Computed example of a mutant assay.
Amino acid sequence: MRQERNGLASMPTGRRKIARQVVLPFRISLAISIKSIRVRFLRSLVTVASLVLAVAFLSFILAGTEVAGGVLATGDARLRLALQDAGYDLPAVAPPPEQAAAEAARLGASPKERWIVLLSLLVCTVGIVNAQLMAVTERFREIGTMKCLGALDRFVLRLFLLEAGMQGLAGSFVGALCGMAGAVLVGLVRYGGVAVSGLTFAGMGRVLLVSMAVGAGLSLLGVVYPAVVAARMRPVEAMRAQE
Protein backbone atom coordinates (compact mmCIF):
# COMPACT_ATOMS: atom_id res chain seq x y z
CA MET A 1 0.00 0.00 0.00
CA ARG A 2 2.85 2.35 0.85
CA GLN A 3 4.48 1.64 -2.50
CA GLU A 4 1.20 2.37 -4.30
CA ARG A 5 0.89 5.66 -2.45
CA ASN A 6 4.49 6.59 -3.20
CA GLY A 7 3.99 5.62 -6.80
CA LEU A 8 0.85 7.76 -7.06
CA ALA A 9 2.56 10.66 -5.35
CA SER A 10 5.51 10.42 -7.69
CA MET A 11 3.29 10.63 -10.76
CA PRO A 12 3.06 14.04 -12.45
CA THR A 13 -0.02 16.06 -11.62
CA GLY A 14 -1.28 15.93 -15.20
CA ARG A 15 -1.24 12.11 -15.18
CA ARG A 16 -3.26 11.67 -12.00
CA LYS A 17 -6.66 10.57 -13.33
CA ILE A 18 -9.64 8.88 -11.80
CA ALA A 19 -9.59 5.27 -12.84
CA ARG A 20 -13.35 4.94 -13.04
CA GLN A 21 -16.13 7.52 -13.05
CA VAL A 22 -19.86 6.83 -13.02
CA VAL A 23 -21.82 9.04 -15.41
CA LEU A 24 -25.60 8.80 -15.57
CA PRO A 25 -27.05 8.48 -19.09
CA PHE A 26 -29.13 11.22 -20.64
CA ARG A 27 -32.40 9.29 -20.26
CA ILE A 28 -31.93 9.17 -16.48
CA SER A 29 -31.44 12.94 -16.39
CA LEU A 30 -34.58 13.36 -18.50
CA ALA A 31 -36.60 11.12 -16.18
CA ILE A 32 -35.42 13.04 -13.10
CA SER A 33 -36.31 16.36 -14.76
CA ILE A 34 -39.82 15.15 -15.66
CA LYS A 35 -40.38 13.91 -12.11
CA SER A 36 -39.19 17.23 -10.69
CA ILE A 37 -41.66 19.12 -12.89
CA ARG A 38 -44.49 16.87 -11.71
CA VAL A 39 -43.60 17.37 -8.06
CA ARG A 40 -43.45 21.17 -8.50
CA PHE A 41 -46.31 21.37 -10.97
CA LEU A 42 -47.89 24.55 -9.58
CA ARG A 43 -44.59 26.47 -9.57
CA SER A 44 -43.91 25.23 -13.08
CA LEU A 45 -47.31 26.55 -14.15
CA VAL A 46 -46.42 30.00 -12.84
CA THR A 47 -43.21 30.03 -14.88
CA VAL A 48 -44.92 28.66 -17.98
CA ALA A 49 -47.85 31.09 -17.68
CA SER A 50 -45.61 34.15 -17.96
CA LEU A 51 -43.92 32.59 -20.98
CA VAL A 52 -47.27 31.77 -22.59
CA LEU A 53 -48.42 35.38 -22.32
CA ALA A 54 -45.21 36.82 -23.78
CA VAL A 55 -45.05 34.33 -26.66
CA ALA A 56 -48.78 34.73 -27.35
CA PHE A 57 -48.31 38.47 -27.80
CA LEU A 58 -45.32 37.91 -30.09
CA SER A 59 -47.23 35.34 -32.11
CA PHE A 60 -50.26 37.64 -32.30
CA ILE A 61 -48.16 40.44 -33.81
CA LEU A 62 -46.40 38.12 -36.29
CA ALA A 63 -49.59 36.33 -37.32
CA GLY A 64 -51.42 39.64 -37.61
CA THR A 65 -48.77 40.81 -40.05
CA GLU A 66 -49.24 37.63 -42.08
CA VAL A 67 -53.01 38.21 -42.15
CA ALA A 68 -52.54 41.84 -43.18
CA GLY A 69 -50.10 40.79 -45.92
CA GLY A 70 -52.61 38.36 -47.36
CA VAL A 71 -55.33 41.01 -47.29
CA LEU A 72 -53.07 43.60 -48.93
CA ALA A 73 -52.08 41.16 -51.67
CA THR A 74 -55.67 41.13 -52.94
CA GLY A 75 -55.27 44.72 -54.18
CA ASP A 76 -58.75 45.68 -52.96
CA ALA A 77 -58.94 49.44 -52.29
CA ARG A 78 -61.57 49.00 -49.57
CA LEU A 79 -59.43 46.48 -47.71
CA ARG A 80 -56.43 48.78 -48.12
CA LEU A 81 -58.31 51.52 -46.30
CA ALA A 82 -59.22 49.04 -43.58
CA LEU A 83 -55.54 48.20 -43.14
CA GLN A 84 -54.67 51.88 -42.85
CA ASP A 85 -57.39 52.30 -40.24
CA ALA A 86 -55.90 49.34 -38.35
CA GLY A 87 -52.61 51.25 -38.01
CA TYR A 88 -50.50 49.84 -40.85
CA ASP A 89 -48.23 52.39 -42.52
CA LEU A 90 -49.19 52.23 -46.20
CA PRO A 91 -48.76 54.80 -48.98
CA ALA A 92 -51.87 56.74 -49.83
CA VAL A 93 -51.58 55.72 -53.49
CA ALA A 94 -51.81 51.99 -54.16
CA PRO A 95 -49.11 50.47 -56.41
CA PRO A 96 -49.98 48.73 -59.69
CA PRO A 97 -51.75 45.35 -59.27
CA GLU A 98 -48.63 43.44 -60.34
CA GLN A 99 -46.71 45.01 -57.42
CA ALA A 100 -49.33 44.27 -54.75
CA ALA A 101 -47.68 40.99 -53.74
CA ALA A 102 -44.29 42.68 -53.36
CA GLU A 103 -45.80 45.40 -51.16
CA ALA A 104 -47.51 42.76 -49.04
CA ALA A 105 -44.20 40.94 -48.55
CA ARG A 106 -42.60 44.15 -47.21
CA LEU A 107 -45.40 44.75 -44.73
CA GLY A 108 -44.23 44.56 -41.12
CA ALA A 109 -45.11 45.46 -37.58
CA SER A 110 -44.94 49.08 -36.49
CA PRO A 111 -42.01 50.32 -34.34
CA LYS A 112 -44.41 50.76 -31.41
CA GLU A 113 -45.50 47.12 -31.60
CA ARG A 114 -41.87 45.99 -31.79
CA TRP A 115 -40.95 47.91 -28.65
CA ILE A 116 -43.96 46.51 -26.78
CA VAL A 117 -43.02 42.96 -27.82
CA LEU A 118 -39.42 43.54 -26.75
CA LEU A 119 -40.47 44.87 -23.35
CA SER A 120 -42.87 41.98 -22.78
CA LEU A 121 -40.15 39.44 -23.60
CA LEU A 122 -37.73 41.24 -21.28
CA VAL A 123 -40.24 41.18 -18.41
CA CYS A 124 -40.87 37.50 -19.11
CA THR A 125 -37.14 36.74 -18.90
CA VAL A 126 -36.82 38.56 -15.57
CA GLY A 127 -39.79 36.59 -14.25
CA ILE A 128 -38.24 33.30 -15.32
CA VAL A 129 -34.94 34.16 -13.62
CA ASN A 130 -36.77 35.06 -10.40
CA ALA A 131 -38.86 31.87 -10.46
CA GLN A 132 -35.82 29.68 -11.12
CA LEU A 133 -33.82 31.33 -8.32
CA MET A 134 -36.67 30.57 -5.94
CA ALA A 135 -36.69 26.99 -7.22
CA VAL A 136 -32.97 26.68 -6.47
CA THR A 137 -33.56 27.96 -2.92
CA GLU A 138 -36.32 25.40 -2.37
CA ARG A 139 -34.11 22.58 -3.67
CA PHE A 140 -31.03 23.18 -1.49
CA ARG A 141 -31.43 19.84 0.25
CA GLU A 142 -32.05 17.97 -2.97
CA ILE A 143 -29.01 19.50 -4.66
CA GLY A 144 -26.84 18.83 -1.61
CA THR A 145 -27.96 15.19 -1.49
CA MET A 146 -27.19 14.67 -5.16
CA LYS A 147 -23.75 16.21 -4.74
CA CYS A 148 -23.02 14.09 -1.69
CA LEU A 149 -23.89 11.03 -3.76
CA GLY A 150 -21.34 12.05 -6.38
CA ALA A 151 -23.32 14.23 -8.80
CA LEU A 152 -21.04 16.44 -10.86
CA ASP A 153 -21.63 20.12 -11.53
CA ARG A 154 -22.53 19.44 -15.15
CA PHE A 155 -25.17 16.91 -14.07
CA VAL A 156 -26.96 19.49 -11.89
CA LEU A 157 -26.63 22.05 -14.67
CA ARG A 158 -28.10 19.57 -17.14
CA LEU A 159 -31.13 18.94 -14.91
CA PHE A 160 -32.03 22.62 -14.70
CA LEU A 161 -31.52 23.14 -18.44
CA LEU A 162 -33.69 20.13 -19.28
CA GLU A 163 -36.49 21.34 -17.03
CA ALA A 164 -36.31 24.84 -18.50
CA GLY A 165 -36.21 23.45 -22.05
CA MET A 166 -39.32 21.31 -21.56
CA GLN A 167 -41.20 24.14 -19.88
CA GLY A 168 -40.08 26.53 -22.62
CA LEU A 169 -41.21 24.29 -25.47
CA ALA A 170 -44.58 23.55 -23.87
CA GLY A 171 -45.27 27.18 -22.96
CA SER A 172 -44.07 28.49 -26.31
CA PHE A 173 -46.24 26.03 -28.24
CA VAL A 174 -49.38 26.94 -26.30
CA GLY A 175 -48.63 30.66 -26.48
CA ALA A 176 -47.92 30.54 -30.20
CA LEU A 177 -51.19 28.74 -30.93
CA CYS A 178 -53.17 31.18 -28.77
CA GLY A 179 -51.57 34.20 -30.46
CA MET A 180 -52.16 32.83 -33.95
CA ALA A 181 -55.78 32.01 -33.17
CA GLY A 182 -56.33 35.50 -31.75
CA ALA A 183 -54.79 37.15 -34.81
CA VAL A 184 -56.99 35.14 -37.18
CA LEU A 185 -60.14 35.98 -35.20
CA VAL A 186 -59.31 39.68 -35.18
CA GLY A 187 -58.63 39.49 -38.91
CA LEU A 188 -62.00 37.87 -39.54
CA VAL A 189 -63.75 40.64 -37.62
CA ARG A 190 -61.87 43.43 -39.42
CA TYR A 191 -61.52 42.12 -42.98
CA GLY A 192 -63.96 39.26 -43.34
CA GLY A 193 -63.28 35.86 -44.89
CA VAL A 194 -60.36 37.15 -46.97
CA ALA A 195 -58.32 37.19 -43.77
CA VAL A 196 -58.30 33.38 -43.82
CA SER A 197 -58.20 32.81 -47.57
CA GLY A 198 -55.10 34.99 -47.90
CA LEU A 199 -53.09 33.00 -45.35
CA THR A 200 -50.44 30.51 -46.41
CA PHE A 201 -49.30 27.38 -44.60
CA ALA A 202 -45.67 28.43 -44.98
CA GLY A 203 -46.31 31.85 -43.44
CA MET A 204 -48.18 30.54 -40.41
CA GLY A 205 -45.67 27.74 -39.98
CA ARG A 206 -42.90 30.33 -39.93
CA VAL A 207 -44.77 32.27 -37.24
CA LEU A 208 -45.13 29.10 -35.15
CA LEU A 209 -41.45 28.18 -35.45
CA VAL A 210 -40.19 31.70 -34.73
CA SER A 211 -42.46 32.05 -31.68
CA MET A 212 -41.44 28.66 -30.28
CA ALA A 213 -37.76 29.33 -30.89
CA VAL A 214 -37.93 32.71 -29.13
CA GLY A 215 -39.88 31.27 -26.20
CA ALA A 216 -37.58 28.29 -25.73
CA GLY A 217 -34.54 30.55 -26.04
CA LEU A 218 -35.89 32.91 -23.36
CA SER A 219 -36.61 29.99 -21.05
CA LEU A 220 -33.06 28.66 -21.41
CA LEU A 221 -31.58 32.14 -21.08
CA GLY A 222 -33.53 32.79 -17.91
CA VAL A 223 -32.34 29.57 -16.25
CA VAL A 224 -28.62 29.88 -17.04
CA TYR A 225 -27.69 31.97 -13.98
CA PRO A 226 -29.82 29.98 -11.47
CA ALA A 227 -28.48 26.72 -12.93
CA VAL A 228 -24.87 27.88 -12.54
CA VAL A 229 -25.59 28.90 -8.95
CA ALA A 230 -27.05 25.46 -8.22
CA ALA A 231 -24.20 23.62 -9.98
CA ARG A 232 -21.48 25.50 -8.07
CA MET A 233 -23.13 25.03 -4.71
CA ARG A 234 -21.01 23.18 -2.15
CA PRO A 235 -22.67 20.09 -0.67
CA VAL A 236 -22.03 21.21 2.92
CA GLU A 237 -23.70 24.59 2.34
CA ALA A 238 -26.68 22.95 0.66
CA MET A 239 -27.18 20.41 3.43
CA ARG A 240 -27.09 23.17 6.09
CA ALA A 241 -30.08 24.92 4.52
CA GLN A 242 -33.23 24.83 6.61
CA GLU A 243 -36.29 23.24 5.06
Rank of each mutant, 00 (worst) to 15 (best):
Val184Glu: 10
Pro226Ile: 05
Ala54Met: 07
Leu118Ser: 14
Met239Ser: 02
Gln3Thr: 14
Ser50Leu: 15
Thr125Val: 08
Phe26Glu: 14
Arg40Cys: 00
Glu66Pro: 00
Ala183Trp: 02
Gly171His: 02
Ser219Glu: 02
Gly179Val: 03
Ser197Gly: 07
Gly127Ser: 13
Val214Trp: 06
Val71Thr: 07
Arg154Gln: 12
Arg43His: 05
Leu209Glu: 06
Val174Leu: 06
Leu218Cys: 07
Met134Pro: 02
Ala238Tyr: 00
Ser219Pro: 01
Ile116Asn: 00
Val194Trp: 05
Ala105Thr: 10
Val156Gly: 02
Arg154Ser: 14
Leu72Asp: 05
Arg106Gln: 15
Leu121Cys: 04
Ile32Gln: 13
Ala63Val: 02
Val223Ile: 14
Arg38Asp: 08
Ser59Thr: 04
Gly217Glu: 07
Phe140Cys: 12
Arg5Ser: 07
Leu53Thr: 11
Ala176Arg: 00
Leu79Arg: 05
Leu220Met: 14
Ser172Leu: 05
Arg80Gly: 13
Gly182Asp: 04
Leu188Phe: 10
Asp153Tyr: 11
Leu221Ala: 15
Arg15Cys: 00
Arg114His: 07
Pro111Val: 10
Leu157Gly: 14
Ser10Pro: 01
Gly108Cys: 00
Ala230Tyr: 03
Val236Cys: 08
Ile116Pro: 00
Arg43Ala: 12
Leu121Pro: 01
Cys124Phe: 05
Gly150Met: 06
Gly192His: 06
Leu220Pro: 11
Gly193Ala: 14
Ala68Cys: 04
Leu62Gly: 01
Val207Ser: 02
Gln242Ala: 15
Val224Lys: 12
Thr125Asn: 06
Ala86Asp: 13
Arg20Lys: 13
Phe173Leu: 15
Arg38Gln: 11
Gly7Ile: 05
Ala238Pro: 03
Phe173Cys: 08
Gly150Ile: 08
Val214Leu: 09
Thr200Ala: 13
Glu113Arg: 06
Phe155Pro: 01
Arg154Pro: 03
Ala49Pro: 03
Ser110Pro: 00
Ala104Phe: 09
Val136Arg: 05
Leu83Phe: 08
Gly87Trp: 00
Val71Ala: 04
Val236Thr: 13
Leu51Gln: 02
Pro91Leu: 08
Ala49Val: 12
